[in-house]
Computed example of a mutant assay.
Amino acid sequence: MAGTPDESAATGRADDPAYDATRLFAGHRELLFSVVYNMLGSVADTEDVLQETWLSWSGKNSRAPLAEIGNPRAYLVRVAVNHALARRAAIAVRRETYVGPWLPEPLVTDTATGSVPDTADQAVRADSVSMALLVVLETLTPLERAVFVLHEVFGYPHTEIAGVLDRSPASVRQLAHRARAHVRARRPRYRAHPRVRREATERFVAAALGGDIGALMEILAPDVTVWIDSGGARSGAGSRPVHGREKAARMLAGYATRRTEDPDIRYRRVNGDDAAVLFTGDTPYAVMVMDLTPDGDQVSDVYLVTDPAKLAHVRRAR
Rank of each mutant, 00 (worst) to 15 (best):
D273T: 12
Y267D: 08
Y190S: 09
V277W: 05
L209W: 10
A208I: 13
L216S: 08
V183K: 02
W227K: 01
R269A: 08
A207T: 01
G281M: 04
R258D: 13
G244S: 11
R197W: 02
V164A: 06
A170N: 05
D229T: 08
V153L: 06
V242L: 09
A176S: 13
G155W: 08
R187F: 15
A179I: 01
T201G: 13
G232V: 03
A162T: 10
G281I: 09
A162C: 04
Y190W: 09
A181C: 10
V226A: 11
E246Y: 00
P157D: 14
D212P: 06
A179W: 09
R189E: 15
T201Y: 00
A275T: 04
G210I: 07
R197H: 09
V172G: 11
E261D: 10
Q174P: 08
R178S: 14
D223N: 10
S168C: 15
T159M: 08
Y267I: 10
V242F: 01
H151G: 04
A207D: 12
R195K: 00
T280H: 13
R266M: 06
G232F: 10
V183A: 04
G155T: 09
K247F: 05
G231N: 06
R191L: 12
E160H: 11
A253Q: 05
F204A: 10
A256K: 00
A221I: 02
A275D: 06
R240S: 06
V277S: 13
W227D: 00
R187A: 11
A176H: 15
A192V: 02
A221R: 01
R167A: 12
G232M: 13
F204T: 08
D274E: 10
L209N: 14
I213Y: 06
E199M: 07
D273I: 03
L252W: 09
R266P: 00
R198M: 09
H177T: 13
R178A: 13
A248L: 00
A170E: 15
E261S: 15
A200K: 01
S171G: 05
V172S: 03
D273R: 08
V153T: 14
P241F: 03
I219K: 08
D166T: 11
R173A: 14
I228F: 07
M217K: 14
R269V: 06
L220Q: 11
D273G: 02
R180P: 08
Y156Q: 04
T159F: 12
S235C: 00
T280L: 07
Y190Q: 06
T201P: 00
L175R: 02
A253I: 09
R189P: 07
I228E: 02
P194T: 07
I161Q: 02
D223T: 14
T257G: 01
V205D: 07
H177A: 15
R180N: 04
E160A: 14
G231F: 06
P194G: 08
L252Y: 04
